[in-house]
Design a protein around this nucleic acid. Structure first.
Length: 290
DNA sequence: CACTTGACCTGTCCGC
DNA sequence: TGCGGACAGGTCAAGT
């Protein structure tokens, strides 16, 4: 659910809202999600100021003045919601999913020196947060294996094609969901970009031409850029750092559109299962290559 | 190494 | 109304 555009939106909001705030206290009881010791928290989080927030793939990296950072993954139902001191008891005015905080999904609360707070909510507890020295971030195993950033200026189509073709016998959908191939794609944007590129999600990755793969990466960049401009997609849980929903799904072409006509050819969109994921496609526009 | 499947969780929805 | 089961999907460990 939080995929690249949602995490990018949260990152932008946190940079706006948290910059230079000093952590005053931390409340947490979530050994699996936030396993750091009380000593680590006391030494490197409490008293530290927020310098900047970065994103890599679907992870957030919060750099602290202590030379430590918080690495955060929201997985499916994670939320990072900031509230000024006057707002704890209220939801966001714009039809928010989030009411008074903390609520029963709140797992960690950071309180800053101006009495504002950041709430890490996660209904399903798949998300996590780690406090670690900033020099160790690049050495995290999953960071080292992460594929390129599709919106980076140094992104190369040739590299994308060769990474895709390493997985020639996987479906193209499974391949673009693989974060070691490309960072940031999840289920929503996989379906949307494959529809734009007119590629059947079950097509084997090794059967797609250079042109098709170039069109696919162009489509992924296009849906990501559009979604970021709309504040991401809110399916069920996702909200940004202010607690607001994203509106990309109002413009989605296939995701959750089963039974409705394809915007391009009017054929009824179907929902099926590919790569063990609910998958939405137009059976006429997206023909299987193999 | 390539590839697939199950586990991790909790809330919601559907059928009986 | 209550209850069991399926389903939602990001990632990793474990299996083939």
């Amino acid at each position: 659910m939080p995929e690249l555009p949602e995490v990018e939106t949260v990152k932008n909001g946190l940079n706006r809202l948290l910059k230079n705030k000093k952590v005053q206290s931390v409340v947490y009881d979530w050994p699996k999600g936030f396993p750091n010791s009380q000593a680590d928290v006391n030494n490197f989080l409490i008293g530290a100021s927020i310098l900047t927030v970065k994103r890599r793939g679907k992870s957030l990296i919060v750099n602290l003045s202590s030379k430590y950072c918080l690495v955060i993954h929201l997985k499916m139902t994670g939320q990072l919601v900031f509230r000024g001191k006057e707002q704890f008891g209220a939801g966001h005015p714009n039809d928010s999913l989030v009411g008074p905080l903390p609520d029963r999904s709140t797992r960690v609360i950071l309180t800053f020196d101006d009495d504002s707070k950041l709430f890490f909510n996660d209904q399903r507890k798949f998300g996590w947060m780690r406090l670690l020295p900033e020099i160790e971030v690049a050495n995290l195993n999953f960071m080292k294996k992460l594929g390129p950033e599709p919106l980076s200026s140094s992104f190369k189509n040739t590299e994308f094609r060769s990474r895709v073709r390493r997985r020639k016998n996987s479906s193209i959908k499974a391949t673009i969901l693989d974060q070691t191939v490309l960072a940031g794609v999840g289920n929503i944007y996989a379906d949307e970009s494959l529809w734009i590129a007119k590629i059947h999600p079950s097509s084997l990755s090794g059967t797609l031409s250079d042109n098709k793969l170039n069109l696919l990466i162009k489509s992924i960049k296009e849906v990501f850029t559009k979604s970021i401009s709309l504040g991401g997609s809110t399916d069920k849980n996702y909200v940004d750092a202010e607690g607001k929903k994203g509106s990309y799904l109002e413009f989605a072409n296939v995701f959750r559109k089963e039974g409705q006509p394809c915007p391009r050819c009017n054929t009824i969109i179907i929902k099926t299962r590919v790569a063990s994921r609910g998958t939405h496609l137009c059976p006429k526009c997206q023909r299987k290559t193999k």
